[in-house]
Amino acid sequence: MPALWRLTRTETARRVYDALKARGLTATQMDEYVADAAAADTDRDPPSGVEIRALDPAETRRFEGRYDAFSELRDDETAVCAFDAESGGRDGEGGENGEVADSDLVGYLFLGDPGLTYHVHPLEADVTFPGGYVRRVFVAPEARNRGVATALVSRAVAVAGERGAETVHALVARDNRPSQWTFESVSFRVACTRAYYRVGPWRRRRVKPRS
C-alpha cells in the first residue's frame, strides 16, 4: 500500500480539496517547524555543479515569466535560488561575466525578514512569525533527490541568522512528508500544529503545542 502522503499530494487530490473548499468544507492541519538559527545545520553544501545565491526582489523579476511564484515575492523577502552551473548556459554574451544563466534556475525558496505577518491561505488566517519565515520551497523535477532542497533551506537559515533572526520558521502540511524530511534534516523541529476547520459558516481554529 502506498504511503498516505503519496495519495494526498496528487493533482487529483488537490482538485477534490479545492472543490470541497469552494463548497464551504475545509479541514487543514499544518505543522509549524522552528529552528534555532545559531544551532541549526547551516553547512549543507549543494550537490556538485549547483550554485546557491540569495537574491533581492529586484534581481528576481526576470524569473516571473517562467515561475508565477516570483510575482508574489514581497519587498521584505529574499529569494534563495539554486542554479545548475553544469548545464552549459552562461549569463551575458559569450559568458564573459561567468555567472549562471537565468535558464539554469533549478530551485528556490522565499525567506522573510524577522517579525513579518503573512496571510496563510490554507488556514485562512494571518500569522506573525517572530523569526525568519521560509516558504515556497520548490525544486524542478529534473533536479530532485539530489539534496537541492536541503541545501536551499540550510542557506536560508544561514542568511536569516546573518540578518539577526534568532529563529527560523516554516509551515508544512501534515501530509507533505517530503518537505517534513527536508526541514528535519536541517535541525528544524515541530513547535506546534495549526488546525483550521470550516463547514459552511462554522469555523474553528486550534493551535496545539508539540513537545
Rank of each mutant, 00 (worst) to 15 (best):
G107T: 09
S154W: 03
A58R: 14
Y67F: 15
L111D: 10
T193E: 10
A195K: 11
D41R: 15
A143S: 13
A37V: 01
R174L: 11
R194Y: 10
F129V: 05
R23E: 08
T8E: 12
E142T: 08
L4G: 03
A54C: 12
A40C: 10
H169D: 11
A173L: 13
A101Y: 00
S87N: 15
H121M: 12
H119V: 11
E166C: 00
R155N: 13
R6S: 04
M30N: 08
A170E: 01
S154K: 05
A170N: 04
S48I: 00
V159W: 06
W5F: 15
S185T: 04
E64T: 11
V127A: 04
G161V: 01
S211F: 02
T10Q: 01
S211C: 05
T193W: 01
S87P: 00
R198I: 14
R198L: 09
G164E: 09
S187Y: 00
V16K: 00
V168N: 06
E184R: 07
E11L: 12
Y67W: 14
E72S: 14
R90M: 07
F63W: 13
E86H: 09
E96N: 03
V157G: 07
Y67A: 12
L25S: 13
R14Y: 07
F138C: 02
C192W: 00
V199L: 13
D68K: 14
T78F: 04
G89Y: 11
A170D: 01
V139T: 11
A156E: 10
E166A: 14
V16T: 10
P47F: 12
V80I: 08
Q29K: 09
R144G: 01
G112E: 07
A156I: 07
E96C: 06
A69C: 00
A37M: 07
P141K: 02
A140R: 08
S154I: 06
E11Q: 09
V153H: 07
Y67K: 05
P46V: 10
R44T: 15
V153I: 15
S71P: 02
P201D: 14
F70D: 05
I52E: 08
V106S: 03
D104R: 13
V139I: 07
V134W: 01
V153D: 06
D36G: 09
P201C: 02
P122N: 08
H169W: 01
G107P: 05
Y133K: 02
G92N: 11
H119D: 11
E124L: 13
E86I: 01
A165Y: 01
V186Q: 03
V199K: 06
S211A: 14
W5H: 15
A22G: 15
P130S: 11
I52N: 08
T117D: 03
L111R: 04
L20P: 02
R74N: 08
Q29N: 04
A69S: 00
E32Q: 15
V127G: 02
A149E: 06
E166Q: 09
F138N: 03
V186G: 03
R62Q: 14
R146Q: 13
L105C: 02
E184Q: 09
A158H: 10
Y196L: 03
V127C: 06
A170H: 00
Y196H: 10
A165D: 05
A54V: 15
